[in-house]
Design a protein around this nucleic acid. Structure first.
Lengths: 355, 355
DNA sequence: CCCTCGATAGAAAGCGCTTGCTACAGCTGT
DNA sequence: ACAGCTGTAGCAAGCGCTTTCTATCGAGGG
């Protein structure tokens, strides 16, 4: 049998209450007593019973991090950074940061949220783009509201702010979402396209991400805005998922739609890699025949040949900040929302159009 | 306030016991009653209190997946696969699969194990190579033993079997580890080096992973074994971490140690990418001047230019299988151990030495 | 020199759920 | 018509911890 608090108490010749207080360190205990208790804990290999503790204290030390695709470094980097800020704050009770992979499925997102609510999670971080389906958005908002009511701190990272009914300023309703770190996908995308335009490109194809995702839409909007400002007509656009295969296929399709393309902008770096492969397979050279650009600046982008022009998103920093916000270790930005900007990284995959 | 079981019971005009039985579905409840209860649950937006439930039932629905680096797709792919097998088995109570990022730190590994033990996790999956430090190995083994005692099913995935004292056959001691899926790193590495030898390479540099990791050692051993069999003297070897930067630096060092190298074998694909970058920066062409090989066959490897010769590990399949084993959905392999083999993928980054 | 206060420890009442056991129908078989 | 079932529902005793309230002991102040 596993040892219980009572066993430890008996061995240390104190009451269970005292043991609990030693373990939680939120009540004065004489040094000698503490010593004795800790020794007993050690000798019995005692480990607190989490469920019992959470039940009695009405709080738990679980922090959930939801990601859309755990195999994608975009999420891995953010999640890892957040986790590193959450695990073992000094003094505080050790928190258990766990990442939950929704795989982009709305049902799983909701399921995980319910599961986290069931565990009375102390905080929840949602990373990456959201689905734009109104029904789903409402369901998520409702769940988050309930989580927040139960005391969980909610942080959005790389996701647009959630508009909650009845949570406006002055209504006295505490907003469900404690803080939002939103990525400036529009602005980054716009600067990227401006860069391409400056290089002389006029026929630019676009490999977009999955439809109905905020990230996809914002990046497309930035791209179109840049074109509109320059008075350049948009080129062909194909939707796909966020993987290299999709980038490959979509690029072939783009080429079919407009064989005279001089540039391809991809939804992200992974997709861009697929695009490069497709172009090469068609015998086109990068950037001499066609320029290619990605987004995110994942670690491998600099190793592509040629190195990928892209927009760097400070994923690690954003994830870490989200982690701190979830722990209440960092002040909430004014208005609860902070925008994280991307930086244009010009590298070898984009070049001037031929004269 | 959040609704409790009792609230639901009152609303449905039944006893709390009945509500519990409806929710857990492990006791006959008349259809009409069930109906009434479910309606009440719905109307009250009731969500089971996980801690209370776990406490009373002495089990929880948490399943922990430990990974060394969540930003590395090697782990992301396995973890995602495992998670997809764990979330929501039909009929069974929904499990919460969570991934914990140790960052390769032994302390964090132990901390997470303790935290999972505290939560009375239903199962724990440890992925990737282990640290070879005997002290740490013993500590982990002890923790796993305690977890298993508490009813958790332990599965190792991509990690060598754990030798537990006193758990041999016939001792009547239930082994702590339910099942082990071990990767044939030695064999894969050996075949890779044999391929290089067959292409005529005799001066092969090796960029190894972190020291004291089983994966590192096994891959090096396979490499050396192939060389020994062929009567070829080992080339220079440099240790580093599992990232591209490390591959870059180590390759420069290798070149310094032996400028006449004709091939570089890297600890994994990520490292290989760094190696490629270093070679290119030195003005060497791949594979004409120097061949490069990786390991794992991560998705981006096929997009490298030239595409990377590597050893494909069925990460997704292994992760999924680990997930099923953790759920008891799949029979344990004979002896509790199954070896997962890698497949040599010959691509453009390796070629014949010049005549 | 007694009283008050600060510091520390204990008693006990839950926290919300599960589950073994008991209770009570409505039937069946004789 | 009655004992014995089978099928459902309720009772109540915890699960192991936290925390409020109370008790005790010493020390300093009036």
């Amino acid at each position: 049998m596993t040892a219980t608090l009572a066993d430890v108490a008996a061995r240390a010749r104190v009451s269970p209450a005292t043991v609990s207080r030693v373990l939680n360190g939120n009540y004065p205990v004489a040094a000698a007593t503490r010593e004795r208790v800790l020794r007993a804990v050690d000798e019995l290999d005692y480990v607190l019973n989490g469920p019992a503790s959470s039940l009695a204290a009405a709080t738990s030390d679980l922090v959930g991090i939801l990601v859309n695709d755990i195999a994608d470094p975009f999420f891995g980097i953010m999640a890892g950074a957040a986790q590193s800020e959450i695990g073992g704050g000094p003094g505080a009770r050790e928190k258990l940061a766990v990442v939950c992979n929704t795989g982009g499925s709305p049902e799983r997102e909701l399921t995980y949220l319910t599961l986290l609510q069931r565990q009375r999670a102390a905080a929840v971080i949602l990373t990456g783009g959201a689905l734009e389906d109104p029904g789903h958005a409402a369901a998520v908002a409702a769940k988050l509201g309930r989580l927040a009511e139960a005391g969980a701190r909610i942080v959005l990272c790389g996701r647009p702010p959630l508009v909650l009914p009845g949570a406006g300023a002055g209504t006295g309703v505490r907003p469900a979402v404690a803080a939002t770190l939103t990525f400036d996908n529009r602005g980054g995308s716009r600067r990227l396209t401006e860069h391409l335009l400056a290089l002389g490109h006029r026929r630019i194809g676009y490999v977009a991400g999955p439809e109905e995702r905020t990230t996809t839409r914002h990046r497309v909007e930035g791209h179109l805005a840049a074109l509109a400002d320059a008075g350049v007509a948009p080129g062909p656009l194909v939707h796909g998922s966020y993987d290299r295969r999709s980038g490959y296929d979509a690029t072939l399709e783009l080429l079919r739609l407009d064989p005279s393309l001089t540039a391809v902008v991809a939804a992200n770096d992974t997709v861009a890699l697929g695009a490069c492969a497709a172009l090469r397979d068609r015998g086109l050279s990068i950037p001499d025949d066609v320029s290619v650009a990605g987004f995110d600046d994942l670690p491998f982008s600099t190793d592509a040949v040629p190195a990928l022009t892209t927009v760097r998103l400070p994923l690690y920093e954003a994830g870490a900040r989200a982690g701190r916000l979830a722990m209440g270790k960092e002040p909430v930005p004014p208005g609860g929302i902070a925008t994280v900007h991307g930086e244009l990284m010009v590298r070898g995959s984009t070049g001037r159009t031929r004269a």
